[in-house]
Simulated scan of single mutants.
Amino acid sequence: MAVRIGRDDADELTENAEINITPFIDVILVLLIIFMVAAPLSTVDVAVELPTSAAPVQPRPDKPIFVSVKSDLSIALGEETVARPALGQALDQAAKGNKDERIFLRADKGVPYGELMQVLNLLRSAGYLKVGLVGLEDTGAGGQP
């Protein structure tokens, strides 16, 4: 509560109802500085390794169609090596034209992620949208099989 002093014509003191906002501004500035320092620290870069999967094993179809990306970046459909432009046509023959057939994609551990995405794009452009990624099962004994 503030009191005005300095009036010559008033004998009694009157109350001043104005809010002092200086401490409020100080608190806001301190909070601004804290958030400016803390915001860059909240982003973290994480190295990722994807060696195994602990997902339950799904039942295997009678004749699965495997597309493999080898370590030399060549593509194999089943056991036969296929050129990238001919992958769609070879898949049509293997799936007998059924675009709803699930394609199992597996890649060597050393294959760059970008190359794997290019093969996924080839599958998508050929009309095969049901793609399963094949990995090693996690045996639970130390993480690595």
Rank of each mutant, 00 (worst) to 15 (best):
V131Y: 08
L50D: 13
G6C: 04
V82W: 08
E12P: 06
L133K: 07
F35E: 00
F24E: 07
R102N: 08
G140D: 07
I34V: 15
V3D: 09
S71K: 05
A126F: 05
L77V: 01
A38C: 11
T52A: 10
V57E: 12
G135L: 09
G114M: 05
L136R: 14
M1N: 12
L13E: 03
E15C: 12
K96W: 03
A94Q: 07
V48L: 15
L73N: 04
A86T: 01
D9R: 04
M36G: 14
T81G: 00
I5C: 10
A90S: 14
V44H: 15
T22A: 13
D11N: 08
L122E: 13
L136Q: 02
E12M: 04
L133I: 14
Q144I: 06
Y113I: 01
I33Y: 11
K70I: 03
F66A: 11
P85A: 10
V44C: 05
R4W: 02
F66Q: 03
S68K: 13
P56M: 06
G135S: 11
A38S: 12
M1T: 10
L32R: 11
K109Y: 05
T22Y: 03
T14A: 12
I103K: 03
L73K: 11
T22D: 01
A126C: 12
L87M: 07
V134A: 00
N98K: 15
E18C: 09
P85M: 13
D92H: 05
A76D: 04
A55P: 04
G114W: 02
I28M: 15
V46N: 08
A2L: 08
A54M: 01
D72G: 01
N16S: 12
N98E: 06
I5Y: 14
P51C: 03
S71W: 02
T139Y: 08
Y113F: 08
G140Q: 05
E137D: 13
Q144S: 14
V69D: 01
V27C: 03
A38V: 15
G132K: 08
R106E: 01
G140L: 09
V82A: 02
T52H: 07
E49H: 13
E137C: 05
P23S: 09
D100M: 06
I34P: 01
A95S: 11
L31S: 06
M36I: 09
T52S: 09
S125A: 15
F35W: 09
E80P: 00
R124Q: 12
T81I: 14
G132A: 15
P61S: 05
S74E: 08
K130Y: 09
V3R: 05
E15K: 08
P145A: 04
G6D: 06
N98R: 15
A17T: 14
P145H: 05
L31Y: 13
